[in-house]
Write a protein that binds this DNA or RNA. Structure first.
Lengths: 347, 347
DNA sequence: TAATTCTATTTAAGCGGTTAAGTAAATAAT
DNA sequence: ATTATTTACTTAACCGCTTAAATAGAATTA
C-alpha cells in the first residue's frame, strides 16, 4: 500500500512550507499568499491527488478551546426502548435527512447520523467526534442533565416544544395546523368531530395539534367533548381500531381529525372494512402529507409541511452557527398548508 | 468554557502515564495491565467525565499505514443530476439506514451518511475521514477510475450487479424475485403477463427482475412478447400511465408484474380511474413490499425482501472487515418471499 | 546465585495538520 | 535616508492520542 500523501509532500512538491499549504487550502484570512504561490500549491495538490486528513485538521485546530473544525454535523434521533431498530420509522425522516444532508454538504460539512438511547448521551458523541454542530430530532434535552447547556456547540432542536429557549429551534406550527385541520372540517358543516392521535405527551407535537383542535372548536363555539377524543399510538393498525370504536359508538361523529396521516389512512381502511365509506359516511383529515396520503383511496385531505424547506432551514442554521459563533439564536416555524383531496365533504 | 479533559488529566488523576490510560481504555492485547491500575484508571475516567477525542485517536493510530481507526463507517448514496436533493426518495432506504446504523453502533461505530455526485468521489470522503469502511448503495465503482481498487478499506456494495468481484456485496436475488412473481401469476392461470418497470439499465436491479420474468415465461413455455413490456420510470404516476396504456391496448393482458411496488400501486389507481377492477379485471403483483403495499386497496401481492436483515448483513460485514483485515470477501444474497394479499386472483 | 523471562509500566516519538510568532524583503511614511 | 509598515512567507510548538521501545522489578530457570 502506497504511503498516504500529506501536506508536507504537497509543500515539497510546490517548494513551500506546510504552513503555506494550509493557508492556501483554507484561504486563511489573516495571512496573505501571493497568487503565484497559491497556484503552485494548488497545482501540487492536483498533481499528487492530495486529500487532507480530517482527523489531523480537527486535532490541529482544537488548540483554541472550543474552536475545533471537524466539519461534521451530528444528527441524533432518540430511540425508544421498544423500537430500537426503527429509527426512521417515520417515513418522512428520510426526506428530512436528505434535505439536511444535501444542504450541509454544499457547505462542506458531512453528516453523522446516530440514534441515541437513554444510556448514552449525544453530548458524548459531540465531544468524541468534535462535532461542529448537532441536530436533535424530536427530543428535548433533559433539564436535570446539567451538562446540556455546556455542549458548547451550535444545537438545533427539531420539533421540540420545550419551554427553555436556549437552543436554536425549527418546528412546524403544529397547533396552528391542528386548528387549520379542524376548522376545515367545521367549514364543511361538521360539528361532531373526533380527534384521533397517538399518545398525547405534554408539550409534544401531538399535544400541540390537540390544542389546535380545541382552538378551532372554541372559535366555532362548539363545546369540547372528551368522548370524541381517541388516543392510541401512531400507526396504521391503530387507525383501524379507532375507526371501529368510532363506528361502534353512537356519539354522532361525522368527521375525524387524525393527528397523523398514518392513522388517517388506517381509519379509511377500518371504516371500509366496516362497510362505511369515506367521505360519504364520515370525513377524515390527516396531518403530515406523507406519501401514502396521495396514494390511498380516497385521497387524504391533510395538512402539509414542507419537509425539504424544514431540512434546509435546519442545515442553514447549523452551518451558519458553526461558521460564525456570533450567530444569534434562531427559531423558525415552518408554514403549513392544507392539501385538499377527497376524504372530506360537506355535511 | 472549561478546558476539555484529556487522557493526561485522567493519567494524572489515576497516578499513571497517559499510555497506561490508553492501554486500559482500548484493552490493548499486547500489553498487560494489573487489575488495580485498570480500576484506578476507570475510576478517574468516571470521576472526570472523560470522553476520548476521536480525532486524536484516529490520527494517533494512523502511524501504521492503512491502520487508522476512526470508528466511522461511510454510507454513500449516488445522486443523479436530476434529483439531487432526493437521496432517500426510495422509502425503504430509511429502513435500511436504520438497520445499518443500529447494528454498527452496537459495535462502536458511527455512521457518516453522504450523497455523492459525479464530481466528487467517495474515495475522497474515505481518505478525508479515514473511514474504517464504506457502504456503497446501488452504484458500481466505475472501472475507468483506477483508484477504485485502492480504497484500501473494507467496501461493501449493496444492490450492485457489477461483473467484478473485488468487493463484498449484499443484494437480493432480484432475478429470482422476478421469476417468483411471474411464476405466481402463471400459477394463477395467467398467460398474457405485462412487465412494467422503470428504465432497464444493464446489470441493474430492474434488468435482473426482467430476466427473472423471462425465466418464468420460458419455464412455462409461454413465448416472450415485447409488446407486453412497458418501461417508464419508477413512480406512482408512471403506474397510472402504464395502466392506461395496458387498458387501451388490446394485447389480451390479464395480469401485470410491476418491478416496483410504487408502480404497482399507481397501476391499481390507474385501472380504477378507468373503471377496471383489481384483481377482478386484472391481477397485479409488485416488488419490494413497501409500506404502501399493505395499505393500498386491494392489498398488493408482492415480493418482499427483509430490509432489516439486509441492513444487519451489511453492518456485520463492514464491522467484521473493519476489525479484522483478513476477513474474506463475502457475498450475501438476501432471500425473498412472496407476500400474498388481494391483488392477484385466478384467471 | 546469575542469567533469563515475564509482568507492569513509562518514555518519547510520531500521526498530519493548524496557527502564533518570527523573519526578510518590499513598500510606505517621516 | 531612516524608520515604520506591509507583504509573503517560514519556523516550530502544539492538538490528544497511539505504540514501539526502554525500563525496572518480580518470578522463573539454569
Amino acid at each position: 500500500m502506497s504511503k498516504r500523501i500529506n501536506s508536507k509532500d504537497v509543500a515539497r512538491e510546490a517548494g513551500v512550507s506546510a504552513a503555506t499549504v494550509s493557508y492556501v487550502l483554507n484561504e486563511t484570512k489573516s495571512v496573505t499568499i501571493s497568487k503565484e504561490t497559491r497556484e503552485k500549491v494548488l497545482a501540487a495538490v492536483q498533481k499528487l491527488g492530495y486529500v487532507p486528513n480530517q482527523a489531523a485538521k480537527t486535532l490541529g485546530s482544537s488548540r483554541i478551546v472550543g474552536k475545533s473544525k471537524s466539519n461534521l454535523i451530528g444528527l441524533v434521533i432518540p430511540q425508544t426502548e421498544s423500537g430500537k431498530e426503527l429509527m426512521f420509522d417515520n417515513p418522512f425522516y428520510g426526506d428530512f435527512l436528505s434535505a439536511v444532508e444535501y444542504a450541509a454538504r454544499q457547505e462542506g460539512f458531512h453528516l453523522l447520523v446516530s440514534g441515541v438511547n437513554a444510556d448514552q448521551s449525544y453530548i458524548d458523541i459531540a465531544k468524541n467526534r468534535s462535532l461542529d454542530g448537532i441536530i436533535i430530532l424530536g427530543m428535548y434535552p433533559s433539564e436535570d442533565n446539567k451538562e446540556y447547556k455546556q455542549i458548547g456547540i451550535p444545537t438545533v432542536l427539531v420539533d421540540c416544544y420545550g419551554t427553555d429557549h436556549f437552543f436554536h429551534s425549527v418546528r412546524t406550527d403544529d397547533r396552528y395546523g391542528g386548528y387549520l385541520a379542524t376548522r376545515h372540517l367545521i367549514q364543511h358543516g361538521h360539528k361532531r368531530i373526533a380527534f384521533v392521535s397517538g399518545e398525547v405527551k405534554e408539550s409534544g407535537v401531538t399535544d400541540m395539534r390537540f390544542l389546535g383542535y380545541q382552538d378551532a372548536l372554541r372559535e366555532a363555539r362548539i363545546p369540547y367533548d372528551p368522548n370524541l377524543v381517541f388516543t392510541g399510538y401512531v400507526g396504521y393498525q391503530y387507525g383501524i381500531e379507532a375507526a371501529a370504536k368510532i363506528a361502534q359508538g353512537n356519539a354522532g361523529i361525522t368527521a375525524a381529525f387524525a393527528a397523523a396521516d398514518i392513522i388517517a389512512v388506517g381509519m379509511i381502511k377500518g371504516f371500509r372494512n366496516l362497510g362505511l365509506r369515506v367521505p360519504e359516511d364520515i370525513s377524515i383529515i390527516g396531518f403530515d402529507d406523507i406519501y401514502q396520503a396521495e396514494i390511498c383511496d380516497p385521497g387524504l385531505t391533510t395538512i402539509r409541511q414542507n419537509i425539504k424547506e424544514k431540512g434546509n432551514a435546519v442545515a442553514k442554521i447549523i452551518v451558519s452557527a458553526a461558521k460564525n459563533s456570533t450567530f444569534p439564536k434562531t427559531e423558525i416555524v415552518i408554514p403549513l398548508e392544507i392539501v385538499e383531496r377527497e376524504s372530506v365533504r360537506n355535511l
